[in-house]
């Protein structure tokens, strides 16, 4: 199926991330020539673009790892933060903040609370007794997602014109960030989340054989599922809280990476993280360089760039994936 060595792939993608980061700083509405990178007059622009590049790396890798976790824990190829309602929960929180309160801090906190509360709600809806069935989890996720999406629509349509425009723009995904503290918070939470996922990589492998099989391998599945679901919710809501709902990354990147380097989570998590980072960096550069000057929301680009790419990989590795 694949001849690419996982470590070579990760190294290559890491290089891509570095190159795209440089491009991400240089390109945009104002193009900065490479030799003038230390020029005083560009300092502010470079600083903001640098924040943006870091955010794209963090969010791209975070959403991808959240997708990897959910697909394995819930044993469902369609699982991603959006399907489980976590994204809309966080989005709902953020929109409530945008409409009724002001200030990015309250928006972030509400988004964060929205995402985490959603996973707790979905989890408890799906739980019977002490056991959690993954089918129930997906169904409650879809239901909660539908409810929150219509609440979002309701809030948007009942708020004033000016406000609804900014809310919609925000919801479509935007990697603009001005606040350094916020950036550091996002990066720290996502890094911590990815590290925890790596620590549980072995258990994720066992879980992909089935829940009873994981138990037979000595894995305490109920506890690990709780931890990992919470981690993926944390990553997602912290991402949504700063840049709105960026779809497709969490779904596509894990599938793509798995097809190239295989399903072993000990390398898949790192592989997905670098792939997601490179992918979102690329999308962000595209979003800033087409349709100058207003730019496009990055959430619009992810599917545009991602789908052809994904179809390509899908056709090259045509194979029954999920039996």
């Amino acid at each position: 199926m694949t001849k690419i060595k996982p470590l070579n792939y990760i190294a290559a993608l890491f290089l891509c991330v570095v190159l795209l980061s440089v491009l991400g700083v240089l390109l945009g509405q104002v193009k900065i020539p490479l030799e003038k990178i230390f020029d005083e007059k560009y300092l502010e622009i470079i600083k903001l673009r640098f924040y943006r590049v870091i955010l794209a790396i963090a969010v791209g890798s975070g959403l991808s790892v959240a997708g990897v976790i959910l697909q394995s824990v819930l044993r469902n190829p369609l699982s991603e933060p959006y399907v489980l309602g976590v994204s809309s929960g966080a989005g709902l929180g953020a929109v409530i903040g945008l409409i009724f309160l002001s200030g990015m801090i309250s928006v972030s906190l509400l988004a964060f609370a929205g995402g985490v509360l959603t996973i707790i709600l979905v989890y408890n809806l799906a739980r019977t007794g002490n056991k959690l069935s993954t089918e129930n989890m997906i169904i409650s996720g879809v239901v909660v997602n539908a409810l929150f999406s219509s609440l979002l629509m309701f809030l948007i349509s009942s708020s004033g014109n000016a406000k609804s425009h900014s809310v919609i723009w925000w919801l479509l995904g935007n990697l603009q960030i001005f606040n350094f503290t916020q950036l550091v918070t996002v990066v720290c939470v996502i890094c911590a989340g990815i590290l925890v996922a790596i620590v549980f990589a072995k258990e994720l492998n066992a879980l992909s054989l089935g829940e009873e099989e994981a138990l037979h391998l000595g894995v305490n599945i109920e506890r690990i599922k709780k931890i990992l679901l919470l981690i993926s919710a944390l990553i997602t809501s912290v991402a949504v809280s700063v840049c709105g709902i960026i779809g497709f990354v969490g779904l596509m990147v894990p599938h793509l990476t798995r097809r190239i380097i295989g399903p072993d989570h000990r390398i898949l998590i790192i592989g997905s993280a670098v792939t997601g980072a490179a992918f979102l960096l690329l999308c962000d550069i595209v979003s800033r360089t087409v349709m100058v000057p207003q730019g496009l929301p990055v959430g619009v680009i992810t599917a545009f760039v991602g789908v052809p790419f994904f179809v390509c990989i899908l056709r090259k590795t045509r194979k029954a994936y999920f039996q």
Partner: peptide, 23 residues
Amino acid sequence: VVPQDMLFMFPFKVLDVVLMGRI
């Protein structure tokens, strides 16, 4: 435990499957 039919969600290599017995 050997189940009736183990369902593999992802296409692991045979050696990787056997190595999971070392978990």
